[in-house]
């Protein structure tokens, strides 16, 4: 696969960067010209105004503060979901009894989107920290549970048979065979879970939190500060993108044998 050698690889990479810059420059130019053509600056501010707004909210710390809060909520809720869902998923995947027991509750609850819990959760938790965390936890839980269960269930039977013939105990088989074999699937579902939670956090904060990126875009919309709204939207996009890249990197680190899986 590494027929071509390093200099060639570097050229390819560099060419990709150039194409990226060209495309984005063209996009920004079109946007700018469109903004010039629209008389009402509130409707479509130019990319320059958005960049300016981004810079200002960065400098006065508002961007980092809100992004920090949203990211912290993401971390807490996904970590909690993972702690609960991964062991439960392993049990579901490996034990028929547990699988049967949980099948219906999961299938009944899962189709109800996390976002649809917002009004009820508003009653229970009120506006504040706990509402977005609950919604994100719920959103992240099912992909993780089902991804882990599917991974654990589809472990090649011959691998387990091979471990048995070597006289390994059940616990050792779980740790040394099932978990590594299910790991790629768990990591893919972790990426899905994080992406879904990141969507949910915006919705939850938009409706029911006094802070965070979702709250900020809604707040600045009501102030009619369109450039700032766009700046925060861009921040949401960039953070979503970076989180996904970080998880991909983590995945390659933890399960290097599954590198090609779930690209993109």
């Amino acid at each position: 696969m590494t027929r071509a050698g390093a200099p060639w690889e570097f050229l390819r990479w560099f060419g990709g960067v150039l194409i990226y810059c060209r495309t984005m420059a063209l996009f920004l130019l079109v946007w700018h010209l469109a903004a010039e053509a629209v008389p009402n600056k509130l409707l479509l501010p130019s990319p320059l105004a958005v960049a300016q707004a981004l810079r200002e909210s960065w400098l006065d710390g508002e961007l980092t503060a809100n992004a920090g809060i949203s990211l912290l909520r993401l971390l807490v809720s996904v970590a909690a979901a993972a702690l609960l869902a991964i062991p439960l998923g392993l049990a579901m995947g490996r034990s028929k009894t547990v699988g049967d027991l949980l099948e219906w509750p999961v299938e009944l609850l899962r189709p109800i989107a996390g976002i649809a819990w917002i009004p009820l959760a508003l009653f229970i938790f009120g506006i504040g920290q706990r509402l977005p965390i609950f919604i994100m936890f719920y959103t992240a839980f099912f992909p993780l549970l089902l991804g882990t269960a599917a991974g654990a269930q589809s472990v090649d039977r011959r691998l387990i048979a091979a471990a048995r013939t070597m006289g390994l105990s059940r616990g050792t088989i779980m740790r040394q065979v099932v978990v590594p074999a299910a790991l790629p699937s768990v990591l893919v579902s972790l990426r899905l879970a994080v992406a879904a939670s990141w969507t949910a956090v915006v919705a939850a904060e938009l409706v029911g939190a006094p802070s965070g990126l979702g709250y900020a875009i809604e707040y600045y919309r009501s102030m009619l500060a369109t450039p700032t709204v766009m700046a925060f939207i861009a921040a949401i996009g960039m953070l979503g993108f970076l989180t996904d890249r970080a998880l991909r990197w983590l995945g390659d680190l933890l399960a290097p044998w599954a590198r090609a899986e779930g690209r993109r």
């Binding site: 194409i19 990226y20 060209r22 495309t23 984005m24 996009f27 509130l42 409707l43 992406a195 990141w198 969507t199 915006v202 919705a203 938009l206 990126l213 979702g214 875009i217 809604e218 600045y220 919309r221 369109t226 709204v229 766009m230 939207i233 861009a234 949401i236 996009g237 960039m238 979503g240 993108f241 996904d244």
Partner: peptide, 23 residues
Amino acid sequence: NLDPLVESFRPIAAIALLPLIIL
């Protein structure tokens, strides 16, 4: 040539665009 645009907009949740779309 289009991939950079797709990769830039894909991570933006639809709901985050709501304020702009209302506008």
